[in-house]
């Protein structure tokens, strides 16, 4: 994992873990690596990882079981919420970038719909071939 040394590392790792959960690479109730294992694996200070886990617990994304480790939440709602948060971030990024190159909101909507329609056909063809 490549982390940017210009932004707080704990935030980057947190976002990374959230992303992995939404992607499904980290499943509900799955045990995360111990702080020691995670820090050794990443080459990152253990206190940073500890902070990550603590913050994630505060956000109810993980929970700590004494003596057993830290686990991804089993609450599907939380995971769905995460998905929406990430989706919102993606949208924000999209909108910001489009705005930067001078595309109005109306145009943005139109371009987006047109793109989705165009690629829908390609997706359907792919599904047909795979199916």
């Amino acid at each position: 994992m490549k982390y940017n040394d210009r932004e707080p590392i704990y935030l980057q790792i947190m976002n990374d873990i959230k992303y992995q959960i939404v992607l499904g690479n980290l499943k509900a109730d799955e045990r995360l690596l111990s702080i020691k294992e995670q820090s050794e694996c990443m080459g990152v200070n253990p206190n940073t990882i500890a902070r990550v886990y603590t913050e994630l617990e505060r956000e109810r994304i993980v929970h700590k079981e004494k003596g057993l480790g830290t686990f991804v939440t089993s609450d599907e709602n939380v995971i769905t919420q995460l998905k929406h948060e990430i989706a919102e971030e993606n949208i924000k990024r999209f909108v910001d970038r489009m705005r930067k190159i001078g595309i109005s909101k109306t145009d943005m909507k139109a371009l987006l719909v047109e793109y989705l329609n165009r690629t829908k056909k390609v997706d359907e063809q792919n599904e047909y071939r795979e199916g």
């Binding site: 040394d5 210009r6 932004e7 707080p8 704990y10």
Partner: peptide, 15 residues
């Protein structure tokens, strides 16, 4: 603290 520099200044420690 290392993370404070990153958060407050957007710089690496080296910078």
């Amino acid at each position: 603290d290392a993370e404070d520099i990153r958060r407050d200044k957007g710089m690496t420690i080296n910078e």
